[in-house]
Amino acid sequence: MTKEEFLQRYKDENLNIGEYIIVLDNITDEPFVLGCVYDQGVWKIYESGERYGHGILKKVDNEEDAFNYFYQVVLSQHKLENN
């Protein structure tokens, strides 16, 4: 899916990811971030926790694969928060 499709799906499904926020425009070391950003020629899906900087979960070459994977990461967090 594209970035816009992801944002619409996230909104439509009213996903609850607890303390986490979603960042799609840069990589940050702020705590509790799930992110997907185009950086240095690749899409990077990353997470930052409470006490450490960001960690790259996956790198992919195209937007569709990036946001399909990122959606699964967000959906996993939603399931953790709502069980």
Rank of each mutant, 00 (worst) to 15 (best):
M1Q: 09
T2H: 02
T2L: 13
K3N: 10
K3Y: 04
E4G: 10
E4I: 11
E4R: 14
F6Y: 02
F6L: 07
F6K: 05
L7A: 13
Q8S: 09
R9V: 07
R9L: 14
Y10I: 12
Y10R: 14
Y10V: 10
Y10C: 10
D12C: 14
E13S: 08
E13K: 10
I17C: 04
I17M: 08
I17R: 07
Y20K: 10
I21M: 07
I21P: 02
I22Q: 00
I22M: 01
V23I: 14
L24A: 01
N26T: 15
N26R: 15
N26I: 09
I27Y: 09
T28I: 11
T28L: 14
D29S: 15
E30A: 12
E30S: 08
F32A: 00
F32T: 00
F32I: 00
V33F: 01
L34R: 06
Y38N: 07
Y38M: 03
Q40M: 08
Q40D: 11
Q40Y: 03
Q40G: 10
G41E: 12
V42I: 15
K44L: 11
K44D: 04
I45R: 06
Y46M: 07
E47S: 04
E47I: 06
S48W: 03
S48A: 03
G49P: 06
G49Y: 09
E50K: 15
E50D: 09
E50S: 12
R51L: 06
R51N: 15
R51E: 13
Y52F: 06
Y52T: 13
G53L: 03
G53Q: 05
H54W: 00
H54V: 00
H54E: 03
H54I: 03
I56T: 14
L57S: 02
K59T: 13
V60G: 02
V60R: 01
D61I: 07
D61K: 15
N62S: 03
N62T: 07
N62V: 07
N62Y: 03
E63A: 06
E63R: 12
E63M: 11
D65C: 05
A66M: 11
N68F: 08
Y69I: 04
Q72W: 08
Q72A: 06
Q72H: 09
V74T: 05
V74E: 04
L75G: 02
L75M: 14
S76Y: 00
H78D: 13
H78W: 08
K79P: 00
K79M: 08
L80W: 08
L80M: 13
L80E: 12
E81G: 06
N82D: 01
N82H: 04
N83P: 00
